[in-house]
């Protein structure tokens, strides 16, 4: 392990069992964990990973929607879309600040995103092909994010939970806006209705994949649930999303591309067909339709901005010297 050029990965310190017990007791009592509190190394690591993935998703998520800002069909829609993408940048920034409370710098996380080590939500590796995608992304993707984040707002780590409360408010607004775009298209011309249905057909299954692997394939969940890093399992959240979304689809008269979709009177759940997990694995391992493009765009922006960041630092240093000399 002794490669001197690199900092060795921090060996997980053997957590003191007494401290772990006290920590778990606090969690069990519903207390919130704050940055200065002691926490198990694995807790810190899991949270960092989750928060970083969330921040990265906000940043990469700007690209598929940014793709339609210049083509939005009315000035009002153009403004809402710019505002939405701007909110996403704000969320990313906010959550990166959250990870800094765990001792991880934003630069380091951004580097992990850019070199492909870090994950972000697989949904953003699908292309946006029509204006209707702007509606459907708001409705499904922000809708799914809300289902996730509403429970994360009760997560045990204080800074993340508080970030979720704030972010959820904006996501709710985005979701309403997206659904309203869809409702408008649903009442529109035959071409608009076809555009909408096509977007729904493309985004439905990837949206269900946003909740991650099925519980039986998600080995980390038990501990994360006990520590209130997560509050519900992937499958529970996915079911909740489906239950919320199906009636919304009925309300605007569109179909969801799943012949197995049916209401179970006993469980009151909308049961749905099998997710294509092979596709999911392909996309998260880098082979989705837009993985390369998304990372290339982020890397290009970062590389082309290098001279700007350097200039800003150089100027700030000059200013600092001038102020000190004065």
């Amino acid at each position: 392990m002794a490669t001197p050029a690199k900092t060795p990965p921090p060996a997980p310190p053997a957590d003191d069992p007494a401290l772990v017990a006290a920590f778990e007791a606090r969690i069990a009592a519903g207390e919130s964990i704050e940055p200065k509190d002691w926490m198990p190394a694995r807790y810190r690591k899991q949270l960092t990973r989750m928060m970083a993935q969330h921040a990265h998703s906000e940043i990469v998520g700007m690209l598929p929607e940014g793709n339609w800002i210049t083509r939005a069909p009315t000035l009002r829609r153009k403004m809402s879309l710019i505002a939405k993408v701007q909110d996403e940048a704000g969320h990313g920034l906010y959550i990166y600040c959250g990870t800094e409370t765990l001792g991880v710098e934003r630069d380091e996380l951004v580097e992990q995103l850019h070199d492909g080590r870090a994950k972000y939500s697989s949904i953003f590796n699908y292309p946006t092909l029509s204006w209707a995608d702007m509606g459907v992304i708001g409705w499904f993707v922000d809708g799914a994010a809300i289902v996730n984040q509403t429970v994360l707002a009760k997560a045990s780590y204080g800074p993340y939970a508080r970030a979720m409360v704030r972010i959820c408010k904006e996501e709710n607004f985005h979701k309403r806006q997206g659904y309203e775009i869809c409702a408008t298209l649903a009442k529109g011309t035959p071409a608009q209705r076809a555009m909408l249905q096509d977007a729904i057909d493309r985004f439905w299954w990837p949206s269900l994949m946003m909740f991650g692997p099925s519980d039986k394939d998600s080995p980390n969940s038990a501990e994360l649930l006990r520590w209130r890093v997560k509050r519900k399992t992937n499958d529970e959240l996915r079911q909740r999303f489906v239950n919320l979304t199906v009636p919304q689809a009925q309300a605007i008269g569109v179909t969801l591309p799943d012949p197995d979709l049916r209401f179970n009177e006993e469980t009151k759940n909308w049961e749905f067909g099998e997710i294509d997990w092979a596709e999911f694995r392909e996309v998260i391992s880098g082979n989705g339709p837009c993985n390369r493009e998304r990372l290339a765009a982020r890397n290009a922006a970062h590389a082309e901005g290098a001279w700007v960041r350097e200039a800003a630092l150089a100027h700030a240093a000059k200013r600092h010297r001038t102020t000190e000399a004065a």
Partner: peptide
Amino acid sequence: LSEWCGHGPILEEDIATAN
């Protein structure tokens, strides 16, 4: 300006130029 959205040199500028 909106063409810069998501492609700025730093995240803070994505926010500012969008604004």
